[in-house]
């Protein structure tokens, strides 16, 4: 069962591992740069665009981990399909549930004055350690 690689195959595998490691690190660094850039940003549209890019980078990272580290890219198409096709359900899950959450928020903002009011009242920043807070509550 064990299939030992030749020296050349070895080199190719190691080169691939190095390549994927560099790609993953670079993607993570770009994500972090975008994250730092977003700190304190007021422009909502730009913020949304950055968040979208971060999600795309996240999917790219996931692809590289699954395809190369988990070796799925080098498996037979049959196996790839049994794993990837069911995961396509997530597309539906994400669309359905996030839009449901969004519509629930709109409904509450329209019909629940208390909910709406709560989101306009500014509060003081809560201070204090865990134990003190517990005492305060009593």
């Amino acid at each position: 069962m064990a299939h030992t690689h030749t020296a050349e195959e070895n080199k190719a595998v190691i080169a691939e591992i190095k390549k994927v490691t560099i790609i993953l690190s670079v993607l993570t660094i770009v994500e972090l740069i975008l994250g730092f850039w977003m700190i304190g940003m007021q422009n909502a549209g730009l913020k949304l665009a950055i968040k979208g890019s971060i999600v795309i980078l996240m999917m790219a990272k996931a692809f590289y981990i699954v395809a190369y580290f988990m070796h799925l890219k080098h498996e037979l198409k049959n196996l790839i399909m049994t794993i990837v096709v069911p995961l396509a359900l997530f597309i539906w899950f994400i669309c359905a549930f996030l839009s449901d959450g969004n519509s629930f928020r709109n409904l509450r903002n329209t019909y629940n004055p208390y909910f709406k009011e709560q989101s306009t009242i500014k509060v003081e920043k809560k201070e204090g350690a865990h134990d003190e807070k517990a005492i305060e509550q009593k």
């Binding site: 997530f90 899950f93 996030l98 959450g101 969004n102 629930f104 928020r105 509450r108 709406k116």
Partner: peptide, 26 residues
């Protein structure tokens, strides 16, 4: 692989519920 797939759905359910609640809050 099949176990990891089911685990992916568990984590996916957690993260999607997090997203849903976050989307439903102001």
């Amino acid at each position: 692989w099949y176990f990891l797939m089911s685990d992916a759905f568990t984590f996916g359910a957690f993260l999607i519920s997090y997203g849903t609640v976050r989307f439903s809050t102001n």
